[in-house]
Design a protein around this nucleic acid. Structure first.
Lengths: 405, 405
DNA sequence: ACGGCTAAATTCAAGGCGTGAGTTAAGTAG
DNA sequence: CTACTTAACTCACGCCTTGAATTTAGCCGT
């Protein structure tokens, strides 16, 4: 029922501003001349809009290109300093806050450890505020903050309410808590989304998913998740919990028990936790204190061939499901465990996926490794206000936003 | 790169026309007064747009409601006769052509049997033309045909090229063939889509899916398919083959062989063909010559409890995958076999799905039976030009359309 | 019958926008 | 220095929506 917010002629302008701004942002410096065909606007309108954007300080001159005869075209680009963005990663062991300029170049960072006893909500709220103050101290106070994105481990409903089983959060209204606690500058747009999804967004915007309109970014860490991009936008589903790929059923009756309570889930075979468990059952041992070290040892061990091949088959079957159901043009394997296992597993995974998936859609899919590493959660989180910034054509101020995708 | 077709102020008008028209179409007779808040337009614009639509004959007066004091509001509705639609179902055994008015009331129908030796492309093209002529004969020649939708058994790529394994079609450019053969009135928009998807559209618009923004319509017939609706529009994927649910992997290593060449697919357990095969393996027999009769016998037989329960578990697991990956608010079980099995299986399926799916998304999903029956493929096909009609605000003429979604 | 009342529908001036042809700006080549 | 070429800007024109004022249409009490 939400009317497609374009009614008056000023909305038209906003929309065109947004188109121009986004094109400039993603397709680098462009001349007004090139912008015309690219955006479908006439030269006159380009001039108008560009002038407005320049006057607002959002866009700046970026030199000019020579021509042999004729006025050289001046290039335009988004001014990196015209606004800053904050990305927050509420992780398992720490809260990380990073400050970026508009091109997502990192300007400052703060890492705040969480005590092992867990994610007390009030403490997390306080730490986010603390980190925010720390990073803001490192830039001139005149810096314009466009918005804050937060990635959390859990399902984010209606943009601000977090359900996180793993951290013991149940319907935590993180957004209002942050505001109420006065930890946020007032009137700063705040966006909250699942951390895996923000990582997926980062891969889509700046990593292995760049350029694809339909893609799935899989996130294999301790557990398994995915971020589905349908037609350029992250697919959310009815209650923002779409893409729970880890609990795809791969073994109906006698499957391994999964921590979700069901049996035969993908995550019961492929995540780092499950993989180590299975290694252990086969007599494997390791000395590293953490999963990452242990997984590296597993990869280095001599007799893990069958285990890894089996894992590849399960992963391939899971990927085949993605291919059949979503028909993406690209599937990105990410997450720290995915990146670790990828080089070893990918050929076998590809073969397994090919055997389980339908030929036609599989032929149109490429399976690639992620490019950004697991730390990109903050970048992805910063992407949330950035998306709003571009959508609104640069007039973010005064909007109390919610974390739509 | 496709610019979001709203650039000039006339596009604005078109968009508003479309909004008004669609509201009137779906939400029945409405007064101009009600239309305002509903569409977000001012009273002045409503008057304008409504006047235009009435002048174009697309909208008509629908009486007025009394008021106690004050001018009574006159109701407006879409004029059912202001345009007609044709839906074509290229089935396994026949080509069916139906003519509808704008409210999708059936006006005429033609059934043209296909010989058992298969779907010779030229013959199908000829039959569609023949059926079209037959139905058009039954209405006055002044009737305005808004478009033709065709549902075919196979994957439809780029709107007009059909890949149908089951009928032996490989990259058949059905659209151009129909036009080239002169079987179509010139300049009539033509849309081609997968038959299962058109059935899904019909359920979404007029059946069990009505009102849902995120839903999956499953189609259980001889085989198994699905039509995914994401945010109100059918999800296509990169090459329009998304939603191939039938080949979701449910048994990784030692699954049953599926006709797709893989093993352990959902379709290897749950479709009518697979179910009968499994019954046969367990000693079941039937006398009916066709699958439908056979399946009915299976349901009536005494000792099929375990078989059906097992089937329900597989189906439940498949549905759990849909819930986890798509997080829909509704899942519709359709297709002739689904409708036949549904009443018997649904409780067990629901239980199985609950055990395999994640709690949070499952709680937000309702699992219901389809309401339209398998003949609704033609209705769904007619829905394709209708969607274009509504999107363009009623100015379909002159557009050589392709079967976008 | 008749005015008074209420509410729906229409009208229209004001404020905006994009287009596209014409104009100006900013270079190169000879 | 002139001719030429191409980029960028300007502005008349046509179209749009808004929102307040106005007209239309039926009810009610007298």
């Amino acid at each position: 029922m939400a009317q497609p917010h374009r009614r008056t002629v000023r909305d038209l302008r906003r929309s065109n501003r947004s188109t121009v701004l986004a094109k400039l942002y993603f397709e680098g410096p462009l001349s007004r001349q090139e912008l015309g065909p690219l955006t479908g606007l006439s030269s006159g309108s380009i001039s108008n809009v560009a002038g407005e954007l320049i006057a607002d300080g959002l866009v700046e001159d970026a030199g000019s290109v020579d021509s042999d005869g004729g006025r050289p075209r001046t290039l335009l680009r988004v001014a990196p300093g015209s606004g800053h963005l904050v990305g927050v990663d509420v992780g398992e062991t720490r809260v990380r806050v990073e400050l970026f300029d508009l091109t997502l170049t990192e300007l400052a960072r703060a890492d705040l450890p969480l005590p092992p006893d867990g994610h007390d909500v009030e403490r997390v709220v306080r730490l986010i505020g603390e980190g925010l103050r720390q990073v803001m101290e490192q830039v001139p106070p005149s810096t314009l903050l466009l918005g804050i994105g937060v990635g959390v481990p859990g399902i984010v409903d209606s943009g601000a309410v977090v359900h996180g089983q793993t951290i013991g959060w149940d319907a935590v209204p993180l957004g209002s808590l942050l505001r109420a606690a006065g930890q946020l500058p007032p009137d700063i747009p705040l966006f909250i989304d699942n951390g895996a999804k923000t990582l997926g967004r980062a891969e889509m915007w700046f990593g292995a998913g760049r350029g694809a309109r339909n893609a799935v970014v899989t996130l294999i860490g301790s557990g398994v998740g995915a971020c589905v991009i349908a037609d350029g936008v992250p697919y959310q589903g009815a209650s923002s919990s779409a893409g729970e790929w880890g609990h795809t059923v791969l073994q109906v009756r006698d499957g391994r028990a999964c921590r979700c309570g069901s049996r035969g889930c993908l995550e019961a075979y492929v995540g780092a936790e499950a993989l180590l468990e299975r290694w252990c059952e086969r007599g494997g041992t390791w000395s590293a204190p953490d999963e990452e070290g242990a997984l590296a040892e597993l990869l280095g061990a001599a007799d893990t061939g069958p285990l890894l091949d089996e894992t590849a088959e399960y992963l391939g079957a899971g990927i085949a499901d993605l291919v059949n159901l979503f028909n993406p043009e690209r599937i990105v394997v990410g997450g720290w465990a995915g990146l670790l296992l990828g080089p070893r597993l990918l050929p076998a995974v590809r073969a397994a996926a090919a055997s389980y998936a339908l030929r036609h859609p599989f032929a149109g899919t490429s399976l690639v490794l992620g490019q950004l590493g697991p730390d990109a959660v903050t970048v992805g989180a910063a992407t949330l206000p950035l998306a709003r910034f571009l959508e609104t054509g640069g007039s973010v101020r005064g909007k109390v936003a919610s974390g739509a995708g």
